[in-house]
Simulated scan of single mutants.
Amino acid sequence: MPAGSSPKRERQYERIKEGAEKRGASAGRAKEIASRTVNKERARSGESKTASKTSAKDKKSASQRGGERSHSGSQGPTRDQLYAEPKKKNIEGRSSMNKQQLQKAVGR
């Protein structure tokens, strides 16, 4: 934690660090997670003098955002992206296939 941090941010840091360690993160990784989280909150609330533009402009905290930006792309390729592969292989009936059928056709 930066020198001169408020007691609230110190408590927040410790709580996040302990939670990360309980979930199995190493001590170093837990400290990193806690530091980044607290610094982001400090930037959002105007407590940080050297905050990045995105940190300062972000109006929602991570908990409020509910993972809106996390896990982007975890759904895999889109149907259109999958369609291109059977097209190259000249697989019959590909135009009427849904995403799961296209995945099966190309062996994913």
Rank of each mutant, 00 (worst) to 15 (best):
M1S: 01
G4V: 05
S5H: 06
P7D: 08
K8E: 10
R9M: 12
R9W: 08
R11C: 08
Y13N: 08
E14D: 08
R15N: 08
R15T: 10
I16K: 00
K17M: 09
E18S: 07
A20L: 04
K22Y: 00
G24M: 02
A25Y: 13
A25Q: 10
S26P: 05
R29S: 12
R29F: 15
A30T: 01
K31T: 06
K31M: 04
E32N: 15
A34M: 09
S35W: 05
S35P: 01
R36D: 14
T37K: 13
V38M: 03
V38E: 04
N39G: 09
N39W: 07
K40Q: 12
R42N: 05
A43L: 01
G46N: 01
K49C: 06
A51C: 07
S52F: 05
T54S: 11
S55D: 07
A56H: 08
K59T: 10
K59F: 11
K59G: 11
K59M: 08
A62V: 01
S63P: 06
Q64K: 04
G67I: 04
G67T: 02
E68C: 03
R69K: 15
S70P: 02
S72L: 14
S72F: 12
S72G: 10
G73E: 00
S74N: 07
S74A: 02
G76H: 13
T78H: 03
L82R: 12
Y83Q: 14
Y83P: 07
A84T: 11
E85M: 15
P86V: 06
K87T: 14
K87V: 12
K87Y: 09
K87W: 07
K88G: 02
K89V: 10
K89A: 14
N90A: 04
E92K: 11
E92D: 14
G93A: 04
S95N: 14
S95D: 14
S95T: 12
S96V: 10
N98D: 03
N98P: 09
Q101F: 02
Q101V: 03
Q101N: 06
L102G: 03
K104W: 10
V106T: 14
G107Y: 10
